[in-house]
Computed example of a mutant assay.
Amino acid sequence: MDNIIISPSKYIQGEGSLDNIGKYVSVFGKKPLAIADDFVMGLVRDRTETSIVGEGLEVNFNTFAGECSRVEIERLITVSAEQGNDVIIGVGGGKTLDTAKAVAYYSKVPVVIVPTIASTDAPTSALAVIYTPEGEFSEYLLFPSNPNMVIMDTGIIAAAPVRTLVAGMGDALSTYFEARANGLSGKATMAGGAPTRSAQALAKLCYETLIADGVKAKAAVENGVSTKAVENIIEANTYLSGIGFESSGLAAAHAIHNGLTKLEECHHLLHGEKVAFGTLTQLVLENAPQAEIEQVLNFCRSVGLPTNLHQMGVKELNNEKLMEVAQASCAEGETIHNMPFPITAKAVYAAILTAHKIGI
Results as ranks from 00 to 15, higher is better:
E332Q: 13
E15C: 13
L322D: 03
Y131G: 05
G214Y: 05
G92D: 08
Y176F: 15
A217F: 02
V59H: 03
A276N: 05
T261Q: 03
Y131D: 11
A326K: 09
E67S: 09
V162Q: 14
A160G: 08
S119G: 02
L141R: 12
D38M: 07
I117S: 14
Y105P: 00
C266Q: 05
E332S: 13
S80D: 04
A220T: 01
A172Q: 11
G93T: 14
V230C: 11
F61L: 03
A191H: 02
T96R: 06
N182M: 11
S226A: 15
C330P: 01
V284G: 02
T261V: 06
L205P: 00
L142T: 12
K274M: 13
R301I: 08
F39N: 13
V284F: 11
F64I: 07
A194P: 01
S248E: 06
A252V: 04
A253W: 07
T238V: 15
I293E: 09
C330R: 02
G155Y: 09
Q290N: 09
H310R: 15
Q200T: 01
Y131W: 10
T209L: 06
V103G: 03
L210I: 05
V79N: 06
L322R: 05
T279W: 11
D19C: 11
S138M: 13
A255V: 06
N308M: 06
L250C: 14
A118L: 05
G193R: 04
H271A: 09
P147N: 07
G192M: 01
L202Q: 12
V225P: 02
V112C: 07
V44W: 06
T189F: 12
K228G: 01
Q13P: 01
V109R: 04
N308Q: 09
L317C: 08
G278D: 10
A255Q: 06
Y239G: 00
A100C: 10
